[in-house]
């Protein structure tokens, strides 16, 4: 297992950074946090939809957010950015060996060449599956995920069962997804972090010679780019 579990650095230091601001600031900060916690716990059993609405309203009243911007920003991630982007990258890599070599060597540039870039995908790493090595991606600490190519992560990716077990017993997790690999296949689990995001390049399925990039892209599922499944097989002609 090649997961980089220890190189996580999710900002645990930021709280301690207050120390150099002086004792008084640190003291103020802690009192403030306690008051915030006390308020949050006192209202924690109110319906979540009402709590979200109240936060949106208060921030709007204070002029801290523009409510008209909210719909536009979610539309982007709900309807425009998603795994279809990643599928185009993979299909290009399958169809064009030079592009694949570029993707593996300089993923940021190769992905940007197809028009995909942005937040939560600033430092991409492409992981090529082969007959001998199968790669699978997790974020054990939270939900780090390559937004520009895959959109927002699925619920199971963010769940405790996946985050806990994939690093300890990846074969059983893959089997749950219906992915049964030969015992001789090495499974490498990659633990994402706040800086580095991974995209699995699944193996090109058999029987896809002659398919164009659009037809190839249709075989590249989201889950195959996370690495819990392989790419889909083409329908028999």
């Amino acid at each position: 297992m090649a997961g980089q579990h220890d190189d996580h650095d999710h900002g645990d230091h930021s709280h301690n950074d207050h120390a150099h601001d002086g004792h008084d600031h640190d003291h103020f900060h802690r009192i403030h946090s306690q008051e915030a916690d006390a308020l949050l716990m006192s209202i924690a059993d109110i319906e979540i939809s009402a709590r979200v609405k109240a936060l949106e309203e208060l921030l709007t009243q204070k002029g801290l957010i523009d409510p008209s911007a909210l719909d536009a920003v979610v539309d982007l991630y709900e309807n425009q950015i998603g795994p279809k982007n990643g599928a185009r990258v993979i299909a290009r890599a399958w169809a064009d060996p030079a592009y694949k070599a570029w993707l593996l060597a300089d993923p940021n540039a190769a992905i940007a060449d197809l028009g995909f870039a942005g937040a939560q995908g600033e430092n991409m790493v492409a992981l090529e599956n082969t007959a001998d090595v199968h790669n699978v991606v997790v974020c054990t600490l939270c939900s780090c995920y390559p937004w520009p190519v895959l959109g927002l992560p699925p619920v199971w990716y963010k769940s405790m069962p996946y985050r806990t077990r994939i690093v300890r017993d990846p074969r059983s997790v893959l089997a749950e997804f219906g992915t049964v690999l030969p015992a001789t296949t090495e499974i490498r689990v990659w633990d994402s972090n706040s800086e580095v995001r991974y995209l699995v390049v699944p193996r090109r399925p058999e029987g896809t010679e002659g398919l164009d990039e659009a037809a190839l892209a249709a075989l590249v599922s989201r889950d195959s780019m996370i690495g819990v499944t392989e790419a889909l097989s083409p329908e028999p002609a």
């Binding site: 936060l55 949106e56 921030l59």
Partner: peptide, 8 residues
Amino acid sequence: RMCALFMV
């Protein structure tokens, strides 16, 4: 809505 609040 919560995701949007975070984004903005």
